[in-house]
Write a protein that binds this DNA or RNA. Structure first.
Length: 425
RNA sequence: GUGGGCGUAGCUCAGUGGUAGAGCACCGCGUUGUGGCCGCGGCGGUCGUGGGUUCAAUCCCCAUCGUCCACCCCA
């Protein structure tokens, strides 16, 4: 007796029942991205481990303990991508696509992080992301954020989200603030909780967004990041917020928003909801001006974001909308002798009505059983083909979702008749 | 990696130290050419797995795996 094999922990199947939600999200996102001039890029799931350690930061949790890393058959260390930006930068650079400024690309696909699963956090999860290269000004930051806001609005979830915004300044300013913060926190080491003491030397800025209530007073008293910004950084941020205001996009300045990845500079932002439990960030991004150079490329600035599809799908699922597409026609075969004729008839209908969903009853069954299946399929119309109809060159049309009277239509005119009589939905 | 909750039918869950039930779903019949509502019948479980206590364990104990939620981290 063999044991049943199950899917790996944290790697869920996405079942047909949820497919319409995913399809709606991905279709909507693709359409919005297209309207802003983004082209799709697809990169491999496996990359050199060094790509991620270099860009995400060797001291981050993602690289330290969450990557799926292993040696391939030639003992090269390879990793499954934990996020999308590093791969996109690599691909753009590798193919010389950064020569012209203003490249806009987007991607969609699975990412992998070895974490303990919980609501909104899986080991295999999916992101849709957008990246823009070669534009340094706040205008593209603003357009990028506006594009995300438009997507939320088209998905009907804008009201559940709030935009949090911050500036990390230039790499130099960020570095300087980091050490200033570290020194200040080190003086208060005794007031830090266990987690924060551990973070003090590895990633002191992360202490700022600690959830521990006992830490809040200390965090309030700590030196502010905004005070460490130079004139250029401050102007970038002010121009960005001015543009957001002009576009009517509400935002909040969250000085504790520091983001997890090492490569961010200047603008960082998150779209957050209270409707998903502890993992409320639905989309996050920012500017990464040093990243391309870090990978041996020219000094090309970049900015982008990534959204978590699982989290957005859950949000969409909370609204009781129906994204599924229902069949239009279900063909009932009243006489088993007519199976071949029935299949041929439906092929002709599919030729004539390309926009319609046309089902054939398969595997026989009593008329009663076939009607039951037709009803359950949610089809608008049941067609009944039996020996009586066949002899007369007709077919029976029965409306399943309305009280319209059952009728007979000649087979020769069936496609035209359906065209004229079936409502478009 | 840490803490807590939960594992009984496809799903949601009851239940008892003497090897199990409901609702929904599914199949059939009531109508030998008509679905939905209703009625009747049926299919379906090694009670997560392994060990221990006991005459006897789905129930008690231990371990293990899975799952959910939170911490951490992050989309």
């Amino acid at each position: 007796m063999s044991e049943k094999i199950q899917s790996l922990r944290g790697m869920p199947d996405i079942l047909p029942a949820d497919a319409p939600l995913w399809q709606h999200l991905e279709d909507t996102a693709a359409a919005v991205l297209r309207r802003y001039g983004y082209a799709r890029i697809s990169t491999p799931i496996l990359e050199s481990t060094a790509l991620f350690t270099r860009s995400i930061g060797a001291a981050t949790d993602i690289v330290e303990k969450e990557m799926y890393t292993f040696a391939d058959r030639h003992e090269e260390s390879i990793s499954m991508r934990p996020e999308g930006t590093a791969s996109v930068v690599r691909a753009m650079l590798q193919h010389g696509l950064l020569q012209t400024p203003g490249q806009k690309v987007w991607y969609q696909g699975p990412m992998f992080r070895y974490e303990r699963p919980q609501r909104g956090r899986m080991r295999q999860f999916h992101q849709i992301g957008a990246e823009v290269f070669g534009l340094a000004g706040p205008d593209i930051d603003a357009e990028l954020i506006a594009m995300s806001a438009r997507l939320w609005s088209e998905l009907g979830i804008l009201g559940q989200l709030r935009l949090e915004l911050n500036s990390l300044g230039s790499p130099a300013e960020r570095r300087q603030y980091r050490s200033q913060l570290h020194d200040w926190l080190a003086q208060h080491r005794d007031s830090l909780d266990e987690d924060s003491q551990r973070r003090l030397d590895t990633n002191p800025m992360r202490i700022l967004d600690s959830k521990n209530p006992a830490m809040q007073a200390l965090i309030e008293a700590a030196p502010k990041l905004s005070a460490a910004l130079g004139d250029d950084s401050r102007r970038h941020f002010e121009q960005l917020t001015g543009m957001l205001d002009a576009m009517g996009i509400a935002w909040q300045h969250n000085q504790r928003l520091v983001r997890g990845l090492d490569y961010y500079t200047h603008t960082v932002f998150e779209w957050v909801t209270d409707d998903l439990g502890a993992q409320g960030t639905v989309c996050a991004g920012g500017r990464y001006d040093g990243l391309v150079a870090l990978h041996g490329g020219p000094e090309v600035p970049g900015v982008g974001f990534a959204m978590g599809e699982e989290r957005l799908v859950e949000l969409l699922g909370q609204q009781q909308r129906d994204f599924g597409q229902r069949p239009d026609i279900y063909l009932i075969i009243a006489d088993p002798q007519l199976q071949a004729e029935a299949l041929a008839l439906n092929e002709r209908l599919r030729d004539a009505l390309p926009g319609r969903i046309v089902l054939s009853n398969l595997a026989g069954g009593s008329l009663r059983a076939q009607f039951k299946r037709a009803d359950r399929s949610q089809a608008q119309i049941a067609l009944v083909l039996g020996s009586q109809e066949w002899a007369a060159g007709e077919i029976t049309v029965k409306w399943l979702r309305s009280e319209r009277a059952q009728t007979s239509v000649s087979l020769a005119q069936l496609a035209d008749w359906l065209q004229q009589n079936m409502p478009n939905n």
